[in-house]
Amino acid sequence: MGFFLETFLGGLMTGLLYALIGLGFVLIFKASGVFNFAQGAMVLVAALAMARFSGWATEALGSMVLGNVLAFLMSVAFMIAVAIVIERLVLRHLVNQELTTLLMATLGITYVLDGLGQMVFGSSVYTIDVGMPKEPLFLFEGVFEGGMLINPDDLIAAGVAATLVATLALLFQYTKVGRALRAVADDHQAAQSVGIPLGRIWVVVWAVAGIVALVAGIVWGSKLGVQFSLSTVALRALPVVILGGLTSVPGAIIGGLIIGVGEKVSEVYLGPFVGGGIEVWFAYVLALVFLLFRPEGLFGEKHIDRV
């Protein structure tokens, strides 16, 4: 029982981390209808930037806390710059193109970001140390034998994810920019005709997605180290948003939790019978099964067809 709960809780934590990446997908899809394959590359670039900046800043300032804060601000500025460049060079020229074209364009951006990021910041493995506690905690030692093992950095990550989601929900619901975002998502042309600047809104969305990527990059990077494989984590997070629905922020969270738990539990209890390593595809197949019953994901907007 203790072991099952431990697996379950571990799954929930991983799920929140997936949700953190999934959020980036949802944000951009909601606001521009673009499915951003480059989210993974953005996570990688953001994490690389943070790792290198924090290295320099800590050395220059001599204090880890100050250095990390400065590095974080620099990375935020960097991601905003990336968003502006992407809008200027790519998106602006692809207004009114088909969905597949935009999808391919983000695949192209992925290659550019992957290559450029590693050229500028170096391609060896870096660490991000933002001072997260590493010692595992034992909970409920009185209730079960041996208690439950929990990593405090997972808890912090979960807290960060929850805060981020709440902030984004508020931003979307109650600010002027948020309202403009929703308008753009609803109908590009109509939004433009009432005077919402499409270009600026896209920059905002990509910048926000970049900052989400930065947070995800810091959390994942401090767990796994910053390296190229971080870029592929996004592929693991893809079924999360599909399951939750591409247009729903809470969907990303709930999808993340379902996938995280499903993945861990199936790996532990089902994996040994079929040769292990089923984590790679389990999330996808789970999402697929869900989709067969709810083609728009759990919380996605229902698609209405008109001829």
Partner: peptide
Amino acid sequence: AHLEHVVFGALIVIFLIAEP
């Protein structure tokens, strides 16, 4: 290798813009 990545990605984007 990285440069190849960058040029490859950039070419794809340019292509999509110039001749979708």
